[in-house]
Structures are given as structure tokens and as C-alpha cells.
Amino acid sequence: MHIRGDHSELVVGGRLDVRSAADARSILHSAVDDGVGDLVLDLSELDSWDATGLGVIMGAHRRAGRCGRRLVLRAVPAQMQRLLVATRLHRILAIEAVAP
């Protein structure tokens, strides 16, 4: 897993899973705490995530809300988009629409 960017936009790549969750959580929490406005997570380079990785995203979403910010997911891969719909998390998370 790799995350690059700053406190307003991060690109998440690789696998967001139980092995990378602690590092990802730390980076996301720092980005939320140190910034203002929307925090955009570009998931275009993300290969996969498991339940733990999804939990990290939800935790960052809750933390952003407590800080008066909004977590926005961008370029969510189709497989992960289907999981968000199946779990109904697409109703809770801000997801940028894919341009036609």
C-alpha cells in the first residue's frame, strides 16, 4: 500500500487491507487533522481492499465529520464501487461521479 499527497488530496494505491491498515489509518488521520475543507481520496491506483481497509475509510469519514470536513472518494474502481453499493455505504460516503 502507498499513499501520497497532502492534507487536501491523497492518492491511495496497492492493497488496503489488514496488513496496511495501521499505517493507512495514521496517514489519513493526520491528513484530516492537519487540513481544512474536503479531503479527497483518489482510489484510482487501489488494487483491492478488505473489510479492515473499508473500516479505515469509514473511520477517516467519521473523523473528518467531527473536524467539520468531508471525505470524498474519487475514481473508485468498479469492483469496490459494487461493494459500497452492496453494503449501502454509497449512501453515507461522498463519492465523486465518474465522468462519462
Rank of each mutant, 00 (worst) to 15 (best):
V11P: 01
V11N: 09
V11S: 15
V11I: 15
V12Y: 01
V12H: 01
G13M: 13
G13Q: 09
G13I: 09
G13T: 05
G14T: 05
G14Y: 02
G14M: 09
G14N: 06
R15P: 07
R15D: 14
R15W: 04
L16R: 00
L16C: 09
L16D: 01
D17E: 09
D17Q: 02
D17A: 10
D17P: 02
D17Y: 03
R19K: 06
R19S: 10
R19F: 12
R19P: 00
R19Y: 11
R19Q: 10
A21K: 02
A21L: 06
A22W: 01
A22V: 07
A22D: 13
A22C: 00
D23G: 09
D23E: 13
A24C: 04
A24Y: 01
R25L: 09
S26G: 04
S26Y: 00
S26L: 08
I27T: 12
L28A: 02
L28I: 04
L28F: 04
L28K: 00
H29M: 09
H29W: 00
H29E: 13
H29C: 04
H29R: 12
A31S: 10
A31D: 06
A31K: 07
V32Q: 02
D33Y: 06
D33L: 13
D33A: 13
D33I: 03
D33G: 06
D34N: 10
D34G: 07
D34R: 07
G35P: 12
G35A: 13
G35R: 10
V36T: 15
V36S: 14
V36G: 14
G37R: 07
G37L: 06
G37Q: 00
G37K: 00
D38Y: 02
L39N: 04
L39R: 00
L39W: 06
L39S: 03
L39E: 03
V40G: 06
V40K: 04
V40L: 14
V40A: 13
L41M: 12
L41H: 03
D42W: 05
D42Y: 08
D42G: 08
L43D: 01
L43M: 06
S44K: 08
E45A: 15
L46Y: 06
D47E: 15
D47C: 08
S48Q: 11
S48H: 09
W49M: 15
W49C: 14
W49V: 02
D50P: 13
D50L: 13
D50Q: 11
D50F: 11
D50R: 06
A51I: 12
A51T: 15
A51Q: 12
A51L: 13
A51P: 07
T52W: 11
T52K: 09
T52A: 12
T52V: 15
G53M: 09
L54H: 00
L54N: 01
L54K: 05
G55M: 12
G55D: 10
V56C: 10
V56Q: 01
V56S: 04
I57F: 11
I57H: 04
I57Q: 03
M58D: 03
G59E: 14
G59M: 13
G59T: 08
H61N: 14
H61I: 05
H61W: 15
H61S: 06
R62K: 14
R62Y: 11
R62H: 14
R62L: 13
R62T: 11
R62A: 11
